[in-house]
Design a protein around this nucleic acid. Sequence first.
DNA 1: GATCATAGTCGTCTTCCTGACGATAAACAC
DNA 2: GTGTTTATCGTCAGGAAGACGACTATGATC
Lengths: 252, 252
Amino acid sequence: MPYDPSAFPPFAVTVDLVVLTVRRHALCALAIRRGEPPFQGRWALPGGFVRADEDLSQAAARELVEETGLCAHDPSVPAQDNGAHLEQLATYGDPKRDPRMRVVSVAHLALAPDLPAPRAGGDASNARWAPVEELLQQGGYGRDGEPVAPLAFDHAQILSDGVERARSKIEYSSLATAFCPSEFTVGELRRVYEAVWGVALDPRNFHRKVTGTPGFLVPTGGTTTRQGGRPAQLFRAGGATLLNPPMLRPEV
Amino acid sequence: MPYDPSAFPPFAVTVDLVVLTVRRHALCALAIRRGEPPFQGRWALPGGFVRADEDLSQAAARELVEETGLCAHDPSVPAQDNGAHLEQLATYGDPKRDPRMRVVSVAHLALAPDLPAPRAGGDASNARWAPVEELLQQGGYGRDGEPVAPLAFDHAQILSDGVERARSKIEYSSLATAFCPSEFTVGELRRVYEAVWGVALDPRNFHRKVTGTPGFLVPTGGTTTRQGGRPAQLFRAGGATLLNPPMLRPEV
DNA sequence: GATCATAGTCGTCTTCCTGACGATAAACAC
DNA sequence: GTGTTTATCGTCAGGAAGACGACTATGATC
């Protein structure tokens, strides 16, 4: 109510990014090693300050380009190019989430096809794709036996929320295609679902479901045999964004 | 990346509230008349600055109490009392959304049972429940023939997003019970769905669906005849929060 | 009190979707 | 050719939902 512009508490506003992709049958997120305190040397989500003249989605798109080279994909433009899907996730503003000052972070979720290794400011050793389970386990040991420190700040919570959003959203939308290259097979799309959900799906029922949903997939006419076995039809994402009825995630 | 606390652009952070309820078979939102520029005299969503030591959800709960007297309801506590459901909606940060300065607003969505008339700072004429269609139509005429000005700032967009969230969320969650008093009948719950979706539902199929979903409704043993007709069983909300399979919104 | 209107509740039938799973097809490796 | 892998088509049973008939229990009206 008291809309007095001169009497507001000072806030910093940042964007943090949950960038997800599927690599080697696992759901992976982009992590950046922090180069300065606090949490120096710990892994964190990419992010940065929102500039004074920048919209939140612009800031998120800019950070995405800086960290991955990915061009953000406007959801209102259905033309599926090399861009990643980008949407706002949630905002985190606990007064103590940054030990130095009051920082409100508007987290965004980006979904991208499998990419070459990332670079963070040109330094590849300070950026990596890591399986989300590895990033989320607190104080355990990673795949290489190295001890794993939890993510900096509240980034474990943000990552967890982003993963949950992605898991639920591919149920009722065609968003899983954002993890695929522009042309893909039904089997590749199925492996995306299996990696994101961490379950095995019946190939026959999956095939029936996705090819039977109007507007989900458009055949390109080509075939490929890059997965081995019988050649598979190639598809690209159709115009439909909402799946009705949804793809059902198996129980337990 | 440049996490320099001294070199951040100055932001103000506010919370805005989309408070929804069902009155007279219509989905209504709480609107407050602005007492000062900009947009003086125009209707707006309730909201205010986030205080320096306050979490975002705390700020939203505080605003909700100030504007409606409603106690916010922690989603992790299933005990359904007189509290309203409160959840974060989205964050709006266009650089020009407030003409005076850079304001980032974290919008929240509140769902409440039908309430007595609201008071805004004790002044009842500056607060009202208005059907959402009335608030969202741009430059038309209201139910009383008075010309309707659009909501202040980007509040029409925020309200629209909040309504869409509510409409989709009652499909797959038991959130519609947040619009009902603590004890309610199946018919009253059905009228909530009908008001929020703006459609007519078959009373028999609806009854089968909600009483057949385990954990959705718990009979209290009592009956009521407050709607006229044959007395109806009274229920209270069960522990289930997710509806599986969901309640299907009729097409078109 | 009989009749009517209103709302609630129980069933039935058909249709659609899904899960389980058999069978065939087309590539590659040996 | 034989075996392996992946893709694709088909069949069948069970469950859920839409359409809708039938019955019940109140209050209102004549």
